[in-house]
């Protein structure tokens, strides 16, 4: 599934948070320039949900994350697309 991000602000927010998690989980000290992000987005009924793949530019470190904004309504698609996007992307 390929979706556009809503705003640059949101995009930067997710990148910042996911980089922090990557460094914490893997025990690295990578900077924003050291990594690449791959975003997939689906909208749930009351949440904005992303699968975010974070990887170092040499691709030696890869971490898949699941990022969920609470309470944001951004889609007219009211199908109950929630956490089961695990299967869809």
């Amino acid at each position: 599934m390929d979706h556009e991000l809503s705003t640059n602000e949101e995009y930067d927010f997710i990148k910042d948070k996911c980089l922090g998690v990557l460094n914490k989980v893997i025990g690295t000290n990578l900077k924003m320039n050291d990594i690449e992000f791959l975003f997939n987005r689906l909208d749930g009924i009351s949440n904005k949900i992303y699968k975010v793949s974070v990887k170092s530019k040499n691709a030696q470190i890869v971490l898949d994350l699941f990022f969920k904004f609470f309470g944001k309504i951004s889609s007219e698609n009211f199908k109950l697309l929630k956490v089961y996007l695990y299967a869809l992307i």
């Binding site: 927010f13 948070k17 996911c18 922090g20 998690v21 914490k24 989980v25 699968k51 898949d64 994350l65 699941f66 990022f67 969920k68 904004f69 609470f70 089961y84 695990y86 299967a87």
Partner: peptide, 23 residues
């Protein structure tokens, strides 16, 4: 279930992604 890596309890939550699951 997945781990919660980080959350502020208000705006967002980051969870472990669990691959290869089917509905």
């Amino acid at each position: 279930g997945p781990r919660v890596y980080e959350t502020d309890y208000k705006v967002y939550r980051i969870e472990e992604f669990i691959p290869d699951l089917v509905m």
